[in-house]
Write a protein that binds this DNA or RNA. Structure first.
Lengths: 156, 156
DNA sequence: TCACCCTGGTTGACACATCAACCTAGTTGA
DNA sequence: TCAACTAGGTTGATGTGTCAACCAGGGTGA
């Protein structure tokens, strides 16, 4: 049986896709709009929030980022005039930020469609969704187990 | 028709998997062995080369890295005693590097199996391989087209 | 011969990500 | 009441990745 070979081949193929697909999309995004993926993610969430404002903690939950990562990122984005920080750890989109995220949405969506959506059949899209959900579920399970291990009093 | 919704759902699910799976594996690798993914990739290739040596350009072709990225990475790894640089842009594995890659292979392989190989069926592995190959092929096609565009004399 | 260009490599500046240390406010519980 | 803990946030150090500029050597053609 070549079960190991299948896993290895799938892993290698997946790694290639992961590296190249993401590299391409983020490069196109950056060259078209000057925004990094991190910038895009933040602005995207902010634009969908009512009033273009959100608390830091809401962004962190939405993105599942390290807290220091968010802090550094927001500082840099404030320096570039994309957002402002108001009292109480509330972040607000600026007019400049609004402009840029609008352009970036179009660029990003087009790239995803071109290199991903248009290339795969409906069955493949469904299969990839299932694969991703299963893998994420496994990761989540293992995290829960580790967590329970580290804090045994939760089960006491 | 919900074609757009399918693409979007698949893309989001894939992004979740990509971020979480890679984060987990690289974190486990780092905590068990002190090696980053970049370290691992370099050492892996070097160990498979005859004599544990390879030219810089061979590593770059194998990894498809930016040339400056490789240069920085090799400088850091040399500083940590994992490799040495000899005359003529040839890189050589040190004893310390050999030890570490051996341990890292086991750790990395186990993580890939646990979070990826064991979670998916043979059909899913095959499907993911096909999906990845198709996406990579599209990226390659578009690169070739861009390249041809930028250098029209190649077709003259 | 010599100017030109291309390739492989290095370097510096900067953006990005993580870790650890720290600060501040609430909460909890003796 | 007050000490301890926790959570949200900031900061600094360090490793990582990209871009642009630069350098060296090897063709190539006028």
């Amino acid at each position: 049986m070549s079960a190991t070979a299948d896993v290895s081949a799938a892993w290698q193929a997946y790694q290639r896709m992961r590296l190249q697909l993401n590299g391409r999309i983020s490069r196109e995004l950056y060259r078209s709009t000057g925004l990094s993926e991190a910038d895009f993610d933040i602005l995207f969430l902010l634009e969908e929030s009512p009033g273009g404002t959100a608390r830091s903690i809401a962004l962190r939950c939405g993105l599942e980022w390290e807290k220091s990562r968010l802090s550094h990122q927001l500082r840099r984005m404030q320096g570039r005039g994309l957002i402002t920080k108001t009292a109480g750890a509330v972040v607000e989109l600026t007019d400049k930020g609004r402009e840029q995220i609008a352009a970036a949405r179009a660029c990003h969506g087009a790239a995803v469609r071109r290199y991903f959506g248009d290339v795969l059949t409906d069955d493949q899209l469904a299969a990839l969704t299932a694969i991703s959900d299963q893998v994420v579920a496994r990761l989540t399970d293992d995290s829960a187990r580790d967590h329970a291990h580290a804090r045994p009093r939760a089960e006491a």
